[in-house]
Amino acid sequence: MHASRILAAAFLALSAPATLSAAAAQTQAETAPEQPGEAAYMQPLGRLAMILGSMHFLRKLCGDPQAEIWRQKMQELIEAQEPAEQDKKQLIASFNNGYRTFAATYRSCTSSARIAVNRYQTEAAALAREIGSRYGS
């Protein structure tokens, strides 16, 4: 995969609406996505996909009118990445894992759900910088 495409894919995933405000701290236990593809950049992209899935669920749960953007950003990530079929399946599985992890825990929008959104937004920005600096040149 061409390095500039990796960088573009990472930044596409982050060009989304601002975060929700937080009220109290709580961490969310996460299950690790399946084994990433052979390419080194697949691990951080897999994590980014998992975050996008989590954000998609949490934003919908909290009534964000732009919640669907997270699924769209995942589609843009895959289109920009043009991954091999196995890697594409892994990215989709990571997105779905992020979604299901929170769907199993939250039934309503709570302060901890808002905090998770903020933490994931921060982590996603750091991942995009890491992907860009490591694989974008």
Rank of each mutant, 00 (worst) to 15 (best):
H2D: 09
H2S: 10
A3K: 04
A3V: 11
S4D: 11
S4F: 01
A8K: 15
F11A: 08
A13W: 04
A13Y: 06
L14W: 00
S15T: 15
A16Y: 12
P17W: 03
P17S: 00
A18V: 15
T19Y: 08
T19V: 09
L20G: 07
L20V: 06
L20I: 05
S21R: 03
A22T: 10
A22N: 13
A22Y: 12
A24C: 08
Q26K: 09
T27S: 07
T27R: 13
T27V: 03
A29N: 10
T31G: 00
T31I: 12
A32K: 09
A32I: 14
A32H: 15
P33T: 11
P33A: 14
P33K: 14
P33Q: 13
E34F: 08
E34W: 03
E34G: 15
Q35G: 11
P36E: 07
E38V: 13
E38T: 12
A39C: 02
Y41S: 06
M42H: 13
P44S: 02
P44E: 08
L45P: 01
L45T: 02
L45E: 08
G46M: 05
R47Y: 07
I51G: 02
I51R: 01
I51N: 10
L52G: 00
L52H: 07
L52I: 04
G53D: 01
S54N: 10
M55S: 10
H56A: 08
F57S: 08
F57T: 09
R59W: 03
K60P: 07
K60L: 03
C62K: 12
C62F: 13
G63M: 04
G63V: 06
G63H: 05
D64W: 11
D64G: 11
Q66I: 09
A67T: 02
A67W: 05
E68S: 12
E68P: 04
E68H: 11
W70Q: 02
R71W: 05
R71D: 01
Q72N: 00
Q72A: 08
K73E: 00
M74T: 04
Q75H: 01
Q75K: 01
E76K: 01
E76L: 04
I78R: 06
E79F: 02
Q81L: 13
P83N: 14
A84T: 10
E85N: 11
E85M: 14
E85T: 14
E85W: 12
K88M: 05
K88W: 09
K88L: 13
K88N: 10
K89Y: 08
K89L: 14
L91S: 00
I92E: 05
A93E: 11
A93C: 06
A93L: 00
S94A: 15
S94T: 02
F95G: 08
N96V: 12
N97I: 14
N97G: 13
N97E: 14
Y99C: 03
Y99E: 02
T101F: 03
F102P: 07
F102C: 09
A103Q: 15
Y106D: 00
R107T: 12
S108K: 15
C109G: 06
T110I: 00
S111V: 07
S112L: 00
S112T: 12
S112P: 06
I115V: 11
V117Q: 10
V117N: 03
T122C: 10
A126Q: 13
L127F: 10
L127D: 02
A128P: 04
A128W: 07
R129E: 12
R129I: 10
R129A: 10
G132R: 05
S133W: 09
S133M: 13
R134K: 15
Y135T: 07
G136P: 08
G136R: 00
